[in-house]
Every structure is written in structure tokens, then in C-alpha cells.
């Protein structure tokens, strides 16, 4: 095991340019799981970003909330303004692991780990977040909704690091994050449903329903068009066009489809008068 400890972001980018296989590590909450038995991971090289305080920033500009790459869930929970303007960031942060994990896990790490069951990614995606990637060649921006090409297939190139995450500041009249998991804490999401509605339209994001966290365009247009929905089953057809859940140790494809449709139906019924009137 080899660990490089850069003293600045530019040094980190230089290391990454010359060692594209090096694994960035910040909180370690994904990489260190079951570490003693992870012989392959133990043999890898790591780029320890945890000392780079310049990445540990939360900033508001005129129309954007900027989360530096080292921002933890706990950092956002300590900022009441985040909860006021982007309440789903708080809802999701509170449901990641438990407090110990929330204080170490980072939003950017959640994006890079690319788990289909991620809790940080779906709320960022529903808010139309953009990922700022940096390398020795400069910076570029990628919409989070275009960041994944398939299971653990990322838009980021080997020499790039996430520098920050940009979250637009918008008014939302409907927004919820529903994590269905087998217990109240220390749980991996079995079905995740995030919905947000603003002047930019509907966002429906599914987690644990496909190889990546993903937007659901058919469900979004159903809501956009105000198509009448009289029962949860009415949502199954567009849902099946958007996602492809699987059977695994944690649940079944059938359960996941049913529950996603039910969460959407009942939560929209509770939070969205327009949806209620379509019944």
C-alpha cells in the first residue's frame, strides 16, 4: 500500500496526472469497508486528499450553492441555510449511515463511488447539480445527470479529480427524498425516490433501481403533462421504461418496482395538490 499526501490541489492534480491509477481517498467510508479482507485494495496506491482544506468549503454565489470536494454530510448539516434552501440535502445527509459516517463521508466521494444505492447523488441530481472536474489541463463542468454511463462507468477521466459541486439555487414547490431501507440507520437503500419540481420542471430520480442512480424521463413527462393517475399501478408502465431493477440479496426487482410506484403515488398525493386532482 502506497499513500501520497499532496499539500495543495495543484500538487494533487500533478500526482494524478503522473499516476492515473492512484485512488483518491478522503473520508474512506467506502474504501475502508471490510479492509482486513480486501487484499486487492490493500495493494493499491492512494492519493490522500484529506489534508486539502481549500476543498473543504461551502459557498453561496448569486445563483449557486458550491460544495467543495471535501464537504462532508455533517458539514452541510451544520449549515442551517443549506436546510432552508436545499432541504433534501439535509434529508439525505441525515439518512447516510449514522453520525460517524456522516462526519467522514463526502458528497464528492459519494459521486465517485458511483453506487446505484447512493443517498447523496440522487438529491444532488434532482437539484440539477453540476460536477466541476479539475486536472492539470484545467477545469470542465459535467451535469451530474450525465456523469454516469453505466455501472461504475464515470464521465471523469483518470487524471481528473472532483474539485467542487455546483447546486443551482431555485424555488421548489414540491420536493421529497424517500429512502426505503431495512432499518432506520446504518442501512443501504433498497429503493430511493427523489422528486423535485421548480420552474425548470419535474425531476424524478431513482436509486437502487438501475445500474446507476438515474433520472426517470418518462415519469417526469407524465407529471409534466398532468396525466391522470388513479392508483400506484398506473405508474408502473413509465417506471419500467425508466428503470431496470434487479433481484439481489437486499430485495427483489418486483418489490422495488411496486414500492417505487407506491412511494411516488402516496408522497405526491401528500405533497402535490396538482397530482391529487388528477386522481
Amino acid at each position: 500500500m502506497r499513500v501520497l499526501m499532496p499539500e495543495s490541489v495543484s500538487e494533487a492534480l500533478a500526482f494524478k496526472a503522473t499516476n492515473p491509477d492512484i485512488v483518491p481517498i478522503a473520508g474512506g467510508t467506502d474504501l475502508l469497508v471490510q479492509w482486513p479482507g480486501q487484499l486487492e485494495r490493500q495493494a493499491a496506491s492512494y492519493l490522500d486528499l484529506s489534508g486539502l482544506d481549500e476543498l473543504r468549503t461551502i459557498r453561496w454565489t448569486q445563483d449557486t450553492l458550491e460544495l467543495g470536494a471535501l464537504t462532508t454530510y455533517w458539514d452541510t448539516l451544520c449549515q442551517p441555510r443549506v436546510g432552508v434552501e436545499h432541504p433534501l440535502l439535509h434529508d439525505a445527509a441525515r439518512q447516510v449511515g449514522a453520525i460517524q459516517i456522516q462526519t467522514r463521508g463526502t458528497w464528492a466521494g459519494n459521486i465517485i463511488n458511483a453506487s446505484p444505492a447512493a443517498d447523496g447523488v440522487p438529491v444532488l441530481m434532482a437539484y440539477d447539480a453540476t460536477v466541476v472536474l479539475a486536472s492539470v489541463d484545467g477545469e470542465r463542468q459535467v451535469p451530474l445527470s450525465a456523469f454516469y454511463h453505466g455501472y461504475k462507468q464515470l464521465e471523469a477521466r483518470p487524471h481528473e479529480l472532483i474539485r467542487k459541486i455546483l447546486v443551482p439555487r431555485r424555488e421548489h414547490d414540491v420536493q421529497f427524498f424517500e429512502k426505503v431501507a431495512p432499518r432506520q440507520a446504518q442501512a443501504i437503500t433498497v429503493v430511493g425516490v427523489t422528486v423535485a419540481h421548480s420552474s425548470c420542471g419535474w425531476r424524478v430520480v431513482a436509486s437502487s433501481m438501475a445500474p446507476t442512480v438515474c433520472r426517470c424521463p418518462h415519469l417526469e413527462s407524465l407529471l409534466q403533462e398532468g396525466t391522470p393517475v388513479s392508483c400506484p399501478e398506473d405508474l408502473l408502465e413509465p417506471l419500467r421504461a425508466d428503470v431496470s431493477p434487479i433481484d439481489d440479496l437486499r430485495s427483489s426487482a418486483h418489490y422495488r418496482e411496486q414500492v417505487m410506484s407506491r412511494v411516488l403515488y402516496f408522497n405526491l398525493g401528500e405533497t402535490c395538490p396538482a397530482f391529487r386532482s388528477t386522481r
Partner: peptide, 13 residues
């Protein structure tokens, strides 16, 4: 046979 997939209650449950 992992703590993530064999679900015992937490204090929150």
C-alpha cells in the same frame, strides 16, 4: 454474511 445485509435492529429502530 455481512453486517450490511444481515439486518439487526439499531438503536434508532
Amino acid at each position: 454474511n455481512q453486517l450490511t445485509n444481515y439486518i439487526i435492529p439499531t438503536a434508532a429502530d
